[in-house]
Design a protein around this nucleic acid. Structure first.
Lengths: 206, 206
DNA sequence: TAGATTGTTAATCGATTAACAATC
DNA sequence: TAGATTGTTAATCGATTAACAATC
């Protein structure tokens, strides 16, 4: 289900396709074309067909794509047809925002545990979760066999916590801390830094 | 200061260079080379030299780059040598997290105003700000001549608020709402959607 | 059938890298 | 000077697009 030769840049577009198709389905549409989808995403129809063809033949000539079918196929390709348990480290403001974010569950993720190292936060409720002591992080993650983590701790703690996450068996980290973290081969990391986006845009402002 | 022909992909890397160089400066380093910087960023030294050469000659053969000088040059290129006032719309959990985020001011941005449409929030404090009524958004933004906005409102309100921001003269929007927004030519938009990153990573998980 | 759209090949375009003269 | 590193050119690599046969 994961052809090894697929360019990463193609894989990175699939979640966008999935999101837009889901929106179409919510609008009540049943069929779409590469042209229509491309227009909505600001991408060429050829690119969409080429990307999808890396994984199989999902459309019908003359007709286009069945939206619900394509959604399911993309979910399988991206491995989000089931739900991943996710752990969050950091129960500060950003942690609160993540914990209360309602948009995970229907897109393949379920926030399962929240950790912090602050005694004032441990044992208290954040969203519908009780914040756990980071000292039991390795044990708890292993016990539940969790593979995906979100990191929302102060910059200075980012690497230390990362090392613990790796020890616990985490294989994918979404890092909100504004520093790059070192991980072993085979562990995926993606970063979210709003300032990088802002600076990218100000370049173009007069 | 903005050569028109510079590829957007190059512009997008400059903020990363700037962030890493700032980190080096904080570590007390004064000189670096394209090789060292590339190693820290996981990018080839050639690419860094090529990218920088689009804007001028900032290094010295045999020596490398003066870190503080290069930081200043990049700040000028990205137009963050001064500070941009930024407006935030949405005082929910994510809005709180953004309002309390300390990382803007030394990187070219200053959160200036926060708006919401919820009477329970208007007039109350979020971080060090008083939440204002979104009904005065256009007037307030115009009065301060603000160009940059962050959007952290529910999906259903995203387009309506966007239209107001455009009306108020906003030219760059960082959109946290998980939907694409329509803007006129010349207005820049960037998106932050954590689920897109998570789904990109799960593709590679076993 | 006629019209539409896919999947795919070949051509184009653009980005990255290798190599090196210039020079600090 | 000798060693190091830049800025840049030319070569390579990869991604996007144009075009079209296949076919629903």
């Amino acid at each position: 289900m994961s052809p090894p030769g697929v360019p990463d840049i193609v894989v990175g577009r699939l979640p966008m396709y999935l999101r837009e198709l889901t929106k179409m389905a919510e609008e009540g549409k049943e069929i779409t074309s590469s042209q229509e989808l491309g227009k909505r995403l600001g991408i060429s129809s050829t690119q969409i067909r080429k990307d999808l063809s890396q994984f199989g033949e999902f459309g019908k000539q003359g007709t286009g794509y069945n939206i619900n079918f394509l959604i399911i196929q993309l979910q399988i390709i991206l491995k989000v047809e089931d739900v991943w348990d996710v752990v969050l480290v950091g129960a500060g403001d950003l942690g609160h925002a993540i914990a209360n974010y309602g948009g995970f569950s229907d897109r393949g993720f379920h926030l399962s545990l929240i950790f912090d190292n602050d005694p004032k936060k441990i044992g208290h409720q954040v969203g519908s979760y009780i914040v756990k002591d980071v000292s039991s992080l390795v044990k708890d993650i292993r016990a539940r066999n969790i593979r995906v983590a979100m990191l929302a701790v102060p910059t200075v703690d980012a690497q230390t916590v990362t090392d613990r996450l790796i020890e616990a068996g985490i294989h994918a980290i979404l890092c909100y801390s504004q520093t790059s973290i070192r991980v072993p081969e085979g562990v995926k990391v993606e970063y979210i830094d709003p300032v990088l986006h802002l600076q990218h845009m100000t370049y173009y402002l007069p």
